[in-house]
C-alpha cells in the first residue's frame, strides 16, 4: 500500500465506491436478501431499513475493528454476533422512540438485521483485518449501496404497485395499480428482473 496521502485518499474512495456497484451487496454478492424482499413494498420503510442497516454496520465495524487484535479465532463469530445484536437492539429502541409508525411497519424485520449476512460478512472480511478508518468507510460504502438498491426496488414496486411515490400520486389517474407488485409475488419478480438487468449492464461494461 502506498504511504503518500493521495494514494491513501484514492484508496478510501475506491473502498467507498466498491459497495455502490462493483461489490454491491444485493446485486453482486446476493447478500441480505431477506430484508431486501420484505420491506420494499414502499420507499419509506425501505429507506428506514437502509438507515438502520447503515447505523448497525458502522457501529459494529467500529467495535470489531477496535478489538481485532484481541479476537480469539474460535470465539470470533460469537463476538461478532454479540456486537451486532447489541447495536440492533439499540437501533430498534431508537426507531421505537423516534419513528413509532415505521417501527410498527417494519415489525420483526428490524431485529432480523442481526442475521443479515451483509453485516457479519463485512465484519469478517473487512473490519477484523483493517484499521478503524478503512472499516468505517467500507461500512458506509456497503450501507449506502444496500440502501440505494433497496430504494430502487421499492421505487419500482411502489410506483407500479400503488401509483404513488413516497405517498404522493405520480401516475396519471387512468393508471390502474398492479396490486400484485405490493404482495410477496411482486417482490420476487421485481428483484429477479432487476438482477437480470444488473447482469446485462455489468456484461456491457466488461
Amino acid at each position: 500500500m502506498t504511504t503518500n496521502p493521495d494514494g491513501q485518499a484514492s484508496n478510501y474512495t475506491k473502498t467507498l465506491l466498491a459497495g455502490l456497484w462493483r461489490e454491491n451487496p444485493v446485486f453482486r454478492l446476493l447478500l441480505g436478501m431477506c430484508p431486501t424482499l420484505a420491506v420494499t413494498a414502499a420507499v419509506k420503510p425501505a429507506l428506514t431499513m437502509g438507515c438502520c442497516v447503515i447505523f448497525v454496520l458502522v457501529c459494529s465495524n467500529i467495535m470489531v475493528s477496535l478489538m481485532r487484535n484481541l479476537l480469539k479465532p474460535h470465539l470470533r463469530i460469537l463476538m461478532f454476533t454479540l456486537t451486532i445484536s447489541t447495536f440492533v437492539t439499540i437501533a430498534d429502541l431508537l426507531l421505537k422512540a423516534f419513528q413509532p409508525a415505521m417501527s410498527e411497519a417494519l415489525g420483526p424485520y428490524v431485529p432480523l438485521i442481526i442475521v443479515n449476512c451483509v453485516i457479519i460478512c463485512r465484519a469478517e472480511a473487512c473490519a477484523s483485518k483493517n484499521p478503524m478508518l478503512t472499516s468505517i468507510i467500507d461500512a458506509f460504502g456497503m450501507g449506502i449501496g444496500f440502501t440505494l438498491t433497496l430504494c430502487v426496488l421499492a421505487g419500482v414496486r411502489e410506483v407500479i404497485g400503488t401509483g404513488k411515490f413516497f405517498d404522493i400520486r405520480v401516475m396519471p389517474d387512468a393508471f390502474v395499480p398492479w396490486a400484485a407488485l405490493t404482495m410477496p409475488v411482486g417482490a420476487f419478480l421485481t428483484l429477479g428482473f432487476l438482477l437480470a438487468a444488473a447482469n446485462i449492464i455489468s456484461k456491457k461494461h466488461s
Binding site: 446476493l30 409475488v185 420476487f188 419478480l189 429477479g192 428482473f193 438482477l195 437480470a196 447482469n199
Partner: peptide, 16 residues
C-alpha cells in the same frame, strides 16, 4: 441474463 439467481427468484415469485 436470467441464468442463475434471477430465474430462481422469478420461479419463487410464481410459487408464492
Amino acid at each position: 441474463p436470467l441464468q442463475g439467481a434471477p430465474i430462481t427468484l422469478i420461479t419463487a415469485g410464481i410459487l408464492s
